Simulated assay, not measured.
Amino acid sequence: MATRRTVTVGLALDCADPTRLAEFWKLALGYEDEPPPAPFTTREEWLARFGLSDDDQEDAAWLHDPTGANPRLFLQQVREPKLVKNRLHLDLRVSGQGSPAIRWARVRQEADRLEAAGATVVAEYSGHHVVMADPEGHEFCVC
């Protein structure tokens, strides 16, 4: 009999300014800064465990869903700019049921909220979803 492995999903996002971009994603997803792994009380202690210090580490941010229901998000600083379309993107699904018109109104309301927070609209598929980009150009959908 095969045993089932427990696997959790985390997403890593390459970016120029992880600290700034983390603020957008915390607002967008309702995420919080993720504490360092036990038994460490700070990220500095955790980095020291691997012989690293803040001086060795580029800027980074670790975020998590406080309910534990959704994947962790790690934002890591990279020097090269984003040049092409993402090969993987996030879908932010608006919860709730209702008529297509009510559901679309909720999608548009969420897209407006994220646009006010710094996202841009890339394309809109009326009645279905809105393609957006975060402040550094990473595409995602609101559906």
Rank of each mutant, 00 (worst) to 15 (best):
G96Y: 12
H129T: 05
R103K: 15
A101M: 09
L114I: 08
L92A: 05
D65W: 07
G98A: 06
R72T: 13
L73H: 03
D14L: 05
L75S: 11
G137N: 03
K85P: 00
T3R: 13
R106K: 14
R113M: 11
E139S: 09
D17E: 14
D55C: 01
V122A: 13
Q76N: 14
G96V: 08
G30R: 09
A22V: 10
R113K: 12
Y31I: 12
Y125I: 13
D54M: 06
A28M: 07
L11M: 12
H64R: 15
T6I: 14
R20F: 00
E45W: 07
A22G: 12
N70T: 06
F50T: 09
M132T: 01
F50G: 12
F24Q: 09
A123I: 00
S53E: 04
D112L: 11
S126C: 06
Q109A: 15
A61P: 04
Q97H: 10
G51M: 03
C141A: 10
D65H: 03
V131T: 13
H138W: 07
A123W: 00
R43G: 03
A101D: 15
W46G: 05
T3L: 12
R108Y: 00
L73R: 01
G68T: 08
S99W: 02
D14T: 01
R5I: 09
W62F: 14
T6R: 10
H138M: 07
Q77S: 08
F24I: 09
T41Y: 01
E139N: 00
A119K: 05
R4V: 11
E136L: 04
E110P: 00
G51D: 02
G68A: 09
D14H: 08
L21V: 07
R20H: 06
R103W: 05
G137Y: 08
T41A: 08
T41Q: 11
H138D: 05
S126G: 10
P39L: 11
H89V: 01
M132Q: 12
A105S: 15
V7W: 11
M132R: 08
W46V: 02
